Amino acid sequence: MLPWVQLDSAPIPGESGELRLKQRGSEFSIMLGSNELMNSRLSGSEEALATLSRDKIAGRPRPNMLIGGLGMGFTLRAALSALPADASITVAELVPAVVQWARGPMSAVFQGCLDDPRVAIHQGDVGELIRQSRAKFDAILLDVDNGPDGLTRRSNDSLYDFAGLRSARDALRPGGVLAVWSSGPDAGFTRRLRDCGFAVEAVNTRANGKRGGARHVIWLAVK
């Protein structure tokens, strides 16, 4: 079996940890310590994050979507496939190196999706961008961590507390959807979403789509 080779590492702004990009043949992995955050072989639940969100806003003219976290681009690629030609997608990515990896060693994984004219990259904290926005987005998709319990960055918790969820609701247009990816269920988070005025649905997905894999959860919270 081919060994893993570390290609690069990058600090996480505001935190003591760092992300590591590793490669084994054509397979890529992004690690935080001993935790694998994402793998290029597993894309099913990230793609579902985009397609399930699209279903909630289908038929809207010029839909405007915010994706928190670039990752390996699976959510972005699925969104581009699902959304119309007049859509706008902003991808907020905190770690500059992740964008560099997308255009460099992982360019084959991204398949040029960052060059789509519908896409704009926002280099910075998605939470700050949400707080600055009012009735701007039809959909906000959050896949910036392991879920409502922050793993890569403690300040990510502020996206999922009451204040963060109210900010997300304010940033959505009427009928817009906040979609949140998680590695597992969280009944307390479901209650917080409802307490903030969202109509909530928790959808179980698999890491590798119809082929199975680990069980993940996507919350669809409609304003």
Rank of each mutant, 00 (worst) to 15 (best):
A171Q: 07
I140K: 05
G175R: 13
K136Y: 09
G25T: 08
L21F: 07
S155D: 13
A78Y: 05
K22E: 11
G71L: 10
F198Y: 15
D125W: 01
G69S: 03
I30C: 10
Q123Y: 03
I57F: 06
F198P: 02
R153N: 10
D115W: 00
D186K: 13
I89E: 06
D115V: 00
S133A: 13
R173S: 08
G59Y: 05
Y160I: 07
V91E: 02
I121W: 03
S107E: 13
S26W: 05
G124Y: 01
L21E: 09
G124Q: 11
G33Q: 10
A85T: 13
F162N: 10
V177Q: 09
R169Y: 07
D170L: 10
H122F: 14
V119S: 00
L49K: 00
G124C: 11
L142D: 00
N204H: 11
P61C: 14
G33P: 05
E18A: 15
S45W: 00
G104W: 03
I67C: 07
G197N: 11
L7F: 04
L172E: 03
T190R: 11
Q132D: 14
T205F: 00
R169F: 04
L193N: 13
G59T: 07
L21D: 10
G17K: 11
I67H: 06
F110V: 03
S107L: 02
G176I: 06
D170M: 11
R62Q: 15
L151T: 09
F198W: 10
A82H: 02
I218G: 12
R134I: 11
M31R: 00
D116H: 03
A108Y: 01
